[in-house]
Amino acid sequence: MVLKNLIRIRRSAARAEAEHPALAAAGLLPGLEALPNAILVLARERLAIAFANPAAEAMLGMSLRQLCQLGWTDLFPNADAPAGAIAALREEASGTTQLDAVLELPQREPLRVHAIIGSLDAAPGYVLLELVENEQKLRTDREERILDLSAVNKQLIRNLAHEIKNPLGGIRGAAQLLELELGANGGLREYTQVIIKESDRLQTLVDRLLEPHRHPHIARDLNIHEVCERVRAVMLAEFPRGLTIHRDFDVSVPDLRGDMEQLIQAVLNIARNAAQALRQPIAEGTACIEFRTRVARRVTIAKRPCKLALDLRIIDNGPGIPEEIRDRIFFPLVSGREDGSGLGLTLAQNFVQQHEGMIECESRPGHTEFRILLPLQC
């Protein structure tokens, strides 16, 4: 197998050298084909692909023969920034530039890459492009930011909640005493009732903020599909018409150690948020939520490498999360609905983090996907 691959590599390099004598004269291709990162060599004039090393073929899912039939803009029609940077290099004899880009591959998932673009001194008619997948780096940076902010938010919430509770109890008690003093004066008692009811509403809000810290974490062996089935039953009872809930379960997912009630609440909060965002599709009978389970291998969760993890996805076909709050949806009191409390996703993230896990979210119009990662074996 190794010999076969080496023969294929040499044939690819030989073909590129035969069709592009300037590259052959520069003697660059034998070194480029051995590099672990994806390398493309483009002709300056038309940005046609002259050479791709095996790493590039694997990343892009195409052979050199297929790639050489395409131009850069044919392969990545939405990669305006890299194409612009390459075009700018046409005017220079040398130079490099770096940028991050999301490349739209034909019939494939978008590819997030860090692109290093440079001129080739030994072959002035060509541009070298190095592509490094940075999905893992972006996800790690996002996780670290969520963890740091979550730790700060937890401490702030606990301190703020305790500071609110004490005077709130005094306000409610004073309103009750005032109501007793008013006696039969019904007109004034209406105002004391407003004070008491609003105090109770704020007390409920504070209790929800403190919920993750009040009850002990009760861990036992559980099956995540039982959690999903419980949530599904609740959701179908709340939305009996217009909502379809699909299940795409991997039955090979092993049991995990966790708190059943906390995980049910976390998944329910996400699913309920999805259903509330699907009000119009529910009315039209086209709303869909999907529960999907898989086993993830060799992932990093909350800065901790894990050999095996549970990958639970909750997917809906709603309008998507508004862009202005997309990066803040796990913050307390942030909601995309006028009648939302902004606590459901905060509590879900807290419950999952108590299981040493993490919730991530990707959203666009027509597709919102929450991903819960829970460690199984680290």
Rank of each mutant, 00 (worst) to 15 (best):
T73W: 01
L236T: 11
P106R: 05
R158T: 13
I245R: 06
T192E: 05
V352Y: 02
G71N: 14
Q280E: 15
L376M: 11
I301P: 06
A83F: 08
K154I: 11
E92V: 09
C288I: 02
L120K: 08
A43K: 15
F76N: 07
H213D: 09
Q276F: 06
I245K: 05
D100W: 04
E198P: 05
E360T: 10
L263K: 06
R142L: 12
C361A: 13
H246K: 15
R220W: 00
N37C: 09
D74K: 02
I264D: 00
F330L: 14
D100Y: 12
A184G: 11
A34Y: 02
A88M: 04
V194R: 10
L128Q: 14
E324L: 02
A14F: 11
S252V: 03
I49C: 08
N159F: 03
V234E: 06
L149W: 08
A58Y: 03
L28V: 05
G95P: 10
D259P: 07
G31D: 14
A48G: 12
H355W: 03
I9C: 09
D221F: 01
N317P: 05
D80S: 11
I329P: 06
R112I: 02
Q193Y: 02
L345G: 07
F76C: 13
E356K: 09
S150C: 05
R279L: 11
A122F: 01
L75C: 04
T300M: 07
